[in-house]
Design a protein around this nucleic acid. Structure first.
Lengths: 118, 118
DNA sequence: CCGCATCCTCTTCGATACTG
DNA sequence: CAGTATCGAAGAGGATGCGG
């Protein structure tokens, strides 16, 4: 492939967090490590299926760590990896960007009667 | 709603650029202003429908400016707004993050101790 | 040249039920 | 408690044709 995004790692970063619930999960884990059930409570709208799926993707991308305690009943704890925490830091720039321009809605459907350029 | 992401503008930022081709378009417009047809050439895999649709969404979010020249044949030029350019700046942090931990192919299945990739 | 409308396909997601 | 499996609905996305 030779898409323009191949040059900048931005696309790769977005790919990792564009999932429907990824940001919520990362935000929650950014607060503290959580068990599976605790995450469900924190994000009530998500289904078990999606939570498990998104967590596995985040784990595959090296953003989330998964620790299994072979107790009974089962216990699994999720936490951010170093990389995941670094993402939260990097995301801060985007946070400030979003807040900076928050309520702008200027219509720019302007029509120009310009000379033919090329 | 009361999701954890409501507090940080990060989710809002992601929403604006999580479209399948948004990053490509923004990257391309980050280089220079482009006409519709020129964008299609730059991103060959995208269909006309998606390009038009994504551009309208980006315009609605105030990231892209659309200038119509009522010539014949029609001519429309797209460019980044101030906000769009600011996004590219903010995205830089994410770029560096992605590159920092980039494709570290730490194959756990790889057992040999031989060096020398040709 | 730009881009909208229609049709059709493929993926995604939610709901439910079941296992260790 | 922490998942997996299956099904059906909903939406995203591609192809094509028409209109300004």
């Amino acid at each position: 492939m030779s898409k323009p995004t191949d040059n900048c790692g931005f696309a790769a970063a977005i790919k990792m967090i564009e999932g429907k619930w990824k940001v919520d999960i990362l935000c929650e884990l950014g607060t503290a490590s959580r068990r599976f059930g605790r995450l469900r409570q924190a994000i009530p709208e998500i289904s078990e299926k999606m939570l498990a799926q998104q967590l596995r993707e985040l784990e595959a991308d090296g953003l989330v760590d998964r620790k299994v305690y072979p107790e009974l009943p089962a216990k699994v704890v999720y936490s951010l990896t170093e990389r995941g925490m670094a993402l939260n830091t990097a995301a801060d720039a985007l946070c400030r960007w979003a807040e900076q321009f928050s309520p702008v809605a200027e219509a720019s459907t302007q029509v120009y009667a310009a000379p033919a350029p090329s």
